[in-house]
Nucleic acid binder design. Structure first.
Lengths: 245, 245
DNA sequence: CGACACCTTGACCAACGTCAAATCCGGTGG
DNA sequence: CCACCGGATTTGACGTTGGTCAAGGTGTCG
């Protein structure tokens, strides 16, 4: 049923870091934002820039966890699979987001690019050592983990108790809010992922996602522009839908 | 539909700490396990023991987050509510578990006792200050948060993609594994929570939980002894069910 | 012994999934 | 510029799982 071909595990091209971290666009929203210049230098010594083409994985569930990543640009999705191919996307990552926080020996999920993504890659062991030296780094990490935990709990509520319409409304608003936080325009919402990814994130099927969007369009709440862009016509209606009906 | 009376917000009785942390039963599985005696003393100075009767909340979703807790004995449940009363339990907590890790200003969920529970309560602000002094404490915290994150992702997979039978099988095995980790006997599984709590944890209804347990009983996979105890007759069958079928 | 809360069971229903067929688009090559 | 290809999306008809509503049991505690 949910079977699909898995992205091949191509080696990821490594690019020498061109610009120094100081001028990094997303520094302020990332881990590195908290560091003084000298500490940043330590980080920089261990970083490599990698990129993932759409459909290409940075790592797979179960792989030994050797690196952690920071998303610089693009969109990534994290997912888990059941043995029969059913898939659940546990999250989408946007610029500034951090990846591979688990301090475990293997990755708990696959990370795959939705759109061409650029990532900073850090050797996990060295980063852990650096955290012992720079408590602020660990503190930042903990703050980040706490945020993710809160988001995960909201997502559990969505998956366990919300209707299809509520899930779609929540999702669209999440994308809009995320864009706003990154300083991007939020009204025609940029929706970089396809229906299948939305479905696997929301615990639905592509058909239900599609039908629900059609319903919202027919109610005049949204309008679908070109592919990958949805305009919100009645934000308050979406907000009302998010949590009840 | 899911409406139910909320536990009244009774003041929690505070008990002076009788026995020192050194002899605490759960020290080895808790945060405090990592600390040297002198550091433990610092922690101890700020701790209070509180208890929650079944149905009583230690705190509610949205309350200002003034304390963090460690479960010493008993079982707690954490839940979130939608405005119309639909409820999702995001987790059950057992002895040694930590509560209120989020470094936010308000609690993201309600924490309520399933069974009489004893908790260690720490003032959140002072604990955060202590973490700045004792990096190991923060490190422990981060490890804990990472574990919770992994568990949350597994739960999302369950809620988003598993069938009722798979959810129940996963749940029973989780309880058994948890008991084993605490050094308790795992075969007649102790199930301290009622069907309604199981349902709200698994994204089902009490009726479906009940019917599914009946099905498992009729297949000879489990046997229900007295209330609050389920015997596993065919563990392998349960394990097979957990992820497909 | 009776009350009450919890659990189980049954009959029915609806939301969402499944299967299959259009339709829409974006890209490509003539 | 236009025809065509192929994947993504939409739509339709129908099926199924799990939810809803409503009785009955069952055990526990006073």
């Amino acid at each position: 049923m949910y079977t699909r071909q898995l992205a091949r595990h191509l080696p990821i091209p490594v690019v020498k870091l061109g610009s120094p971290c100081n001028s990094c666009d997303i520094r302020e929203v990332s881990l590195c934002g908290a560091l003084a210049d000298e500490e940043l230098e330590r980080l920089r010594q261990m970083v490599a820039t990698v990129h993932c083409e759409p459909g290409q994985a940075a790592f797979h569930e179960g792989d030994p966890a050797e690196s952690v990543f920071n998303v610089v640009s693009g969109t990534m999705k994290l997912y888990k699979l059941l043995p029969d191919g059913r898939r659940l996307i546990t999250g989408f990552l946007f610029p500034g987001d951090f990846l591979g926080i688990a301090l475990h020996d293997t990755y708990a999920y696959t990370a795959e690019a939705v759109e061409l993504a650029h990532l900073c890659r850090f050797p996990r062991r060295r980063l852990i050592l650096l955290m012992e030296e720079i408590p602020l780094l660990e503190h930042r990490m903990l703050g980040h983990a706490a945020d993710e935990l809160v988001a995960a709990q909201d997502q559990m509520l969505l998956l366990g108790r919300k209707t299809a319409k509520e899930r779609i409304a929540s999702f669209l608003l999440m994308l809009a809010e995320r864009a706003a936080r990154l300083g991007q325009r939020e009204n025609p919402i940029r929706v970089p992922m396809g229906r299948a990814d939305m479905a696997d994130y929301l615990g639905l099927t592509t058909e239900t996602v599609s039908r629900t969007l059609t319903q919202l369009r027919n109610s005049g709440i949204i309008a679908t522009k070109d592919r990958g862009r949805i305009e919100v016509k009645a934000r308050e209606a979406l907000v009302a839908l998010r949590e009840s009906g």
